[in-house]
Design a protein around this nucleic acid. Sequence first.
DNA 1: AATGAATGAGAATTCATTCAT
DNA 2: TATGAATGAATTCTCATTCAT
Lengths: 238, 238, 238, 238
Amino acid sequence: MRLHRLFILFPEKKLTEEKQREILDAGVQAFSEKGLEKTTMNDIAHRAGISVGVLYKYYKDKDDFFRACVYCVVEEMRQFLEEITRERTKPLLQAKALITKSRRLAEEKRPYFRLYLEMARNQSLPRELIHDIEGYPARIYTDAIRDAQQRGDMRRDLDPALLAMCFDDLLKMLQFSYASPYFEERAQVYGGEHALEEDWLTEGMLRFMESAFTLESGDIRHREETPADAPADCKREA
Amino acid sequence: MRLHRLFILFPEKKLTEEKQREILDAGVQAFSEKGLEKTTMNDIAHRAGISVGVLYKYYKDKDDFFRACVYCVVEEMRQFLEEITRERTKPLLQAKALITKSRRLAEEKRPYFRLYLEMARNQSLPRELIHDIEGYPARIYTDAIRDAQQRGDMRRDLDPALLAMCFDDLLKMLQFSYASPYFEERAQVYGGEHALEEDWLTEGMLRFMESAFTLESGDIRHREETPADAPADCKREA
Amino acid sequence: MRLHRLFILFPEKKLTEEKQREILDAGVQAFSEKGLEKTTMNDIAHRAGISVGVLYKYYKDKDDFFRACVYCVVEEMRQFLEEITRERTKPLLQAKALITKSRRLAEEKRPYFRLYLEMARNQSLPRELIHDIEGYPARIYTDAIRDAQQRGDMRRDLDPALLAMCFDDLLKMLQFSYASPYFEERAQVYGGEHALEEDWLTEGMLRFMESAFTLESGDIRHREETPADAPADCKREA
Amino acid sequence: MRLHRLFILFPEKKLTEEKQREILDAGVQAFSEKGLEKTTMNDIAHRAGISVGVLYKYYKDKDDFFRACVYCVVEEMRQFLEEITRERTKPLLQAKALITKSRRLAEEKRPYFRLYLEMARNQSLPRELIHDIEGYPARIYTDAIRDAQQRGDMRRDLDPALLAMCFDDLLKMLQFSYASPYFEERAQVYGGEHALEEDWLTEGMLRFMESAFTLESGDIRHREETPADAPADCKREA
DNA sequence: AATGAATGAGAATTCATTCAT
DNA sequence: TATGAATGAATTCTCATTCAT
């Protein structure tokens, strides 16, 4: 009621909400571009079209603001993960969707993933925050994998939590490859100039995972020694 | 490389070579502890037992010194990799050794891996440096994998370079888990309190890789649906 | 004075008069606690339960408001002095009352005296303001002393204005001792832990003044040399 | 020895000592002119002909520097007091010298006494510092007074510590009158335009003290009531 | 060649004051 | 008229870099 009246009297107050968003976006952008320390509060204020004073009205200090940006990004990622896992298809299909869409997300929202790296190196991050951030995907992945193991869709010779971590390891590195200049370059060291432009990385990793998470040692079939001619689709110039 | 050059510049001072080492060590330590920006040149000079003036005699500026530290670490890692791959055992055995010893290395030389993370976020790293750094392991891994594929020891349905990258992805995340506070905590989110102390992570990842890199989709064997009782070795307390 | 003017400006709002009082009280409190510069306009507004805008409606700027607070305090002190000197008893009795009641006033209204100190250090105080503030007590004291001199109740060998000033000097220091943390501590340096709690300071100063303002050099009586045993009432534990 | 060699090798090092002095002087000057908060570190650096960096090399922060200035002033005052009390003349003569020379000191070194006022209002002064500052004069005065009481040169009806405090009260106000614009003006309110230029204040207070500290109530002599004509030397225009 | 004091640009943060609502 | 969000100048403090000794 009261809120509604306020909304009518000061419809601009809604701008504040929007402005908040704008400010955080400016922060994420700036931090991901230049890093925590090289980004100045003035820079952020300028990008957001506000004065530093506003920044300090909403946030205690630079670190507080940085953490808010991290939360913002983490929340976005959680939503991304939620959306994909909402539709209760087979875990393997979900994983497939996750990988494919991660690539697009990482390309579109590079700052988000760079901010992740920026955060990961922060020495003063409270334990709880880390659990907050990693807990959700950890649970989602582990549960899905346990589920798949029970259905017989996934290898059962390993702790589901470990498989979940390996999955996230690979997914994270994939995302970094599309978001961080360093890991981008690294991907090209491995996959050549077009490693990221074409489907080399995404498709390749997808296919790697498909069997890596499905087959267990016991599934091994005897293979007769074969000569150097590998199948066409796995060849590539050095 | 750099070290060699310096040695030539001041050949009369055998101490210089040693001192250089000390200075770089101080740098690696400091940078990995506090990050590039939070580390001061005075701090480094103090740790190395020299004056800032010396620092600026050997290195153009802070960034130049940081890069030298990175080189130093990379060089160390290269040697580590070289040592392990020198003895021409089977690639799979080498991988095994790499993983097991990586853990120990990461624990003993945490600064090295933290410096890697610190470096990876640096936006102003020249392409060439990245190729320099990642090129060596990329080549080693890819060659070894191609080799193994030809012998039939490794799945052939994927580009060796891609498999190499996946391998390095997992290895890197493993190393980070033992070296970076953030990834340490993350490992515990997945594997519980003792994820790092016991062999949960190292052993688990090793076993994951064993089949992940060996089996290909075609190897799939029909498995009869099994009930909820997973094999003992994949169970874990909640 | 000022208060009167404001009352005329907003005569329709009886509340304003009261609010004014509240605002000034908030100011006096804040300024005396944290000093002129460390007190913020927001702080004052918050204490007074108003918005900064109001502050700037009534007062040109922070300095103007500070001066208003000073006036307020000075006015209060003037009333205090007026009340005591209204009843036309002997000057010496008035002085006695002044000292005794000053102590109570200083303890109850510490902010008033601290604000005095805060004001006394202000370099940009207009001459007139100082004359305004000190003129009233100066006149009262001087007149009373001149009066007492004529009656023979006070030493006549000195200018009544000078005696008045000495009296005010001692009175001020007494007040500071009960109101300012620094002078409080100083009193304890002289009189020990309980200098202020018991009557050491007040009573002592009263007795000091009694003869100091009464006797003149000519009154000197020959005193035979006496040994170390001072009279009981001047002894004190170490 | 070593110090001597250093002195010869780097005679400029002595400049540092001198520079220290210059810096503190600049600080005392600035703080006493504009107050603790209104004085900026840049201002001080500028006055001292150095850069802010130097200030922060020698002193932790502004507050630390302020305290150093206070110590510097206090030390100076202690020396002043020491010099005067060194020659073991009669306490009353020492008091006389103290008052006379205080005036000159206060006029020459106004900043010192203004800094005292600036310090006295500081809320965060540690107890110990206050005891440090006030302890020395308190002891000197109290001892001298006790001594004089035993000789019969001073009134014995009061605690020597209390008399000491009254003496210091009057001395401090005298000093303030010559050093602080506010108390200067106040002195003129009492003593007229030339209160400070001529000897009205100094001489008057001296004569006031002479008997105030000498005579005790018991010394009172009966005085016959006298008419309004006070002695010439105590008259003054209003 | 080594030292480390000095420099001063630059960053974080505060707060008096304004002004749109 | 009252509000209090927004502004941005000013201040403290840091630290890469220089240079006289």
